[in-house]
Amino acid sequence: MENKKYVIGADIGGTTVKLGLFEEDGTLLEKWEIPTVIEGDGTAVLHDIAAEIQKCREKHNIPADGILGVGAGIPGPVTADGVVHRCVNLGWGVFDVRTALEETVGLPVVVVNDANAAAMGEAWKGGGRGSENVVFITLGTGVG
């Protein structure tokens, strides 16, 4: 998979973190999940994500500069600069997820609310493609 550029998607939920390896155009190449570890301050999950990204790079022979960045969906309100304001499922209060994840994975990171990320994905590549408006409701460990 050399010379191509990829992105990683991470849906950080209260029970599992769902991860995906994507081509730049949004084509899903692989998906997998790991348990969400929330003990302590809940930041162990960020280190788990970094380890999974490294495993993915090794598995697919992706060079260090082959991943453009990480998009992370968070189950809570997120500001434009990637700060979550209370994430009950993960034990986070006000937490700068974007900066913490960038420092952990060593890649650019975009952080948004998980339900908004799902809606954007459906509008771009899924059932909402071509629609002017899309409504999306998530049901999991929480409701979004």
Rank of each mutant, 00 (worst) to 15 (best):
I137A: 15
G144P: 03
H85M: 08
L101N: 03
N3V: 10
A123K: 13
P35R: 08
S131R: 14
G73D: 08
D65G: 09
D41F: 05
A50P: 03
G142M: 07
W92S: 00
G106I: 10
V84G: 02
R86K: 09
V37L: 13
P77R: 07
E23N: 10
L139K: 13
G20D: 12
T27S: 13
V110M: 15
A72D: 01
F136C: 13
I34G: 10
V17K: 03
V83D: 05
G121Q: 03
G14R: 08
G13M: 08
P35I: 12
A80C: 02
V134K: 05
E23H: 09
I137Y: 15
V111N: 04
R98P: 00
I67C: 07
K55V: 03
P77E: 07
V94H: 05
V37S: 12
W92C: 00
T15E: 07
K31E: 15
V7G: 09
G91K: 05
I8P: 01
I67G: 06
T36R: 01
A119G: 13
D48W: 05
V111D: 01
V37D: 15
I62M: 01
L107H: 01
G127T: 15
R129D: 03
V7S: 09
R129H: 09
V88M: 14
P108C: 11
A100V: 04
L29D: 06
M1Q: 04
S131V: 01
I49H: 01
A118N: 01
T16G: 00
E122G: 06
P77G: 02
T43K: 03
I38Q: 10
K59M: 10
D65A: 11
A118D: 00
H85V: 14
A117D: 05
H60I: 03
T36P: 10
V88A: 10
N133M: 12
D114A: 08
K31N: 14
V94A: 11
A100H: 07
K4V: 09
E23T: 11
E23D: 11
H60T: 03
V84L: 00
D114H: 04
D65R: 06
K125Y: 13
W32V: 09
G13V: 13
T16R: 06
G142T: 03
L46R: 00
P63D: 14
L90Q: 00
I137R: 09
G73P: 01
S131F: 12
E58Q: 12
D11Q: 08
I53E: 00
K31W: 06
V109Y: 03
V45I: 14
